[in-house]
Amino acid sequence: MNNILDINGISKFYGPIQALDNVSFSVPAGSVFGILGPNGSGKTTLLGIVMDILRATSGTFTLLGQPPSADSRKHIGTLLETPNFYHYLSGENNLRIAAEIKGSGKDNINEVLQKVNLYDRRMSKFMTYSLGMKQRLAIASALLGNPDVLVFDEPTNGLDPVGIAEIRELIKRLAEEGKTIIMASHLLDEVEKVCTHVAILKKGKLLLSGNVDEVLVNEDIVEVSASSLDRLEEVMRSLNGHINMKRNPHSLQVNYPLGTANLERINQHCFSQGVVLNLLQLKKKSLETKFFELTNN
C-alpha cells in the first residue's frame, strides 16, 4: 500500500532555536501511527508543518502521495494542539463553518456530534463549554465528512477518565474501519494501547520509527535474584549468550537478544553452581522503559 505521509529531511528553526532537525519518516496507509516525545520535542511543530500552518526551514513532504495542497487537507480530519473555534458561535454553527470549508456538506454534523456525546449541547455557545467538551467538539470537527486520514495531536487532553476511554475506543474503532490515524502524544500508554507504528522524537531529532513490535521489543530481559547478588552476578557472568547485565538494588537484570533467553538453562546453571534463585522472570521491555532509555541520554 502507498504511504499517506512521507517526510523527507524536515528541519525547522524558531529564530536560533532548532525545533526539528532533519526528520524523515513515512506513515503507511491503514496504520495507527504514534508520534511520541516529551513536551517540547517538536511533535506539534511537525504536524503544523504538514498542515501548512508553519513553514519548514528546509525539507519536503508529500501528503496522500502528492505535493501538499489545500485540497488534500480537506480529506484529512485534524485536531492540532488546542480546539480552535469561534467563541461566540454554538458548537453546531462552528461545525457548519468547518463543513463548509471541507465541502463535506452539513448532513453528518449531527452524526459526529452524537459520536462525541455533544449533541445535547450543540446549541450552546463554544465559550460555555468545559475543556473536555471543547476537546470533544474538536474531535467531532475532525470526523466531519468521514475522512480516511485523521491527525490527532494530544487527543485526550483535558478529558476525564471516562472521556479518555471513550476516545481510545473511538480511535480503535476508526482504525478497524481501515482509517489511517496519526497521533501525537506524550502519554505512553495511550500510544502503547492503540498504535501499530511509532516514531519517537527528542529535542527535534527523530530517535527511531517503525512498527511498534519491532521498535519496542528488541531484547529479552530476564530478572533474577538470589540471597547473594555478588555471587549470583559471578555465576551469571559465566553463562554466555547475554548482551549486558545490570545490577538493581534487589535483583539482577540480564538482557539477551530477542527470543534467546532460556529460563530453564539459567535456573539449572545457577543451581548447579550452588546459587538458589528466589526470582526468575522474563520481561518484555515496556514502552515506558524504552522511552526513558531513549529520551534520557
Binding site: 498542515m51 495542497s69 489545500a70 485540497d71 469561534y86 470549508i101 471541507k102
Partner: peptide
C-alpha cells in the same frame, strides 16, 4: 485570538 485562521487552513482553505 481564536486561532481559527489556523483551523481554517487546516480544514482546507489555502492561505
Amino acid at each position: 485570538s481564536f486561532k481559527t485562521h489556523r483551523q481554517n487552513v487546516i480544514d482546507g482553505l489555502s492561505r
